[in-house]
Amino acid sequence: MVTEAPLPSGTTRRRVELRLHEPWFAWGARPTVVVDGVSQPAQWGSGTWALPDAGSVEFAVFGINRRWRFGAASVRVDAAAAAGAVIEYRAGALPFGPGTLVVRG
């Protein structure tokens, strides 16, 4: 009996682009991306994330600096429907309050 080996990293067909827009008040803050409860440090700008073959995925983003956390936002997307989509994050207009996370495409 032969079992199929998993595909190597980077070969998944289901990917989503995540665009993180740096707020004017960033003051050295860095974004953190949380995918299904697992946080990953990120950088401002664009990046891609692999999606599972089925089910839904929750993306959450917030900015953090040495003193506080700001602009938290989250969105749940269906993995099959979101393949090739762009998720855009923007922090709020002020350094407190929620941000926005919008799925485009």
Rank of each mutant, 00 (worst) to 15 (best):
D53G: 13
A72Y: 14
A82Q: 05
L51W: 03
R19A: 14
F59L: 15
L20V: 10
A83P: 05
G105Q: 11
W24H: 09
R69F: 02
R69A: 12
A29T: 07
Q40R: 15
G84L: 02
P8Y: 08
F25V: 11
D36H: 12
R15P: 00
A54H: 10
T100F: 00
E4R: 15
D36C: 06
I64D: 00
G63N: 09
R104G: 00
R67P: 00
G37S: 03
A91V: 03
Q40F: 12
A79T: 05
A83R: 10
W49D: 00
P52H: 04
N65D: 15
S74W: 04
A73H: 05
P6D: 09
R30H: 12
A72W: 13
T32I: 14
T12W: 04
F62W: 11
G10F: 08
S9E: 15
L94Q: 12
P31Q: 10
T100N: 01
Q40D: 09
R76F: 00
T12G: 15
V35M: 09
G105R: 14
A42R: 13
H21L: 14
V103T: 10
R104P: 00
T12C: 04
T3Y: 10
I64T: 14
V75Y: 01
F96C: 05
T32A: 01
G71Q: 02
V61Q: 05
G55W: 09
G63F: 05
L18K: 03
G92C: 08
W27L: 15
G47E: 09
L18A: 05
L101H: 03
A81E: 14
A83W: 04
P8T: 02
V16R: 07
A54I: 04
R90V: 09
S39D: 11
A50D: 13
V34T: 13
V33N: 10
F96P: 00
G55P: 07
T48A: 10
G92H: 07
H21I: 15
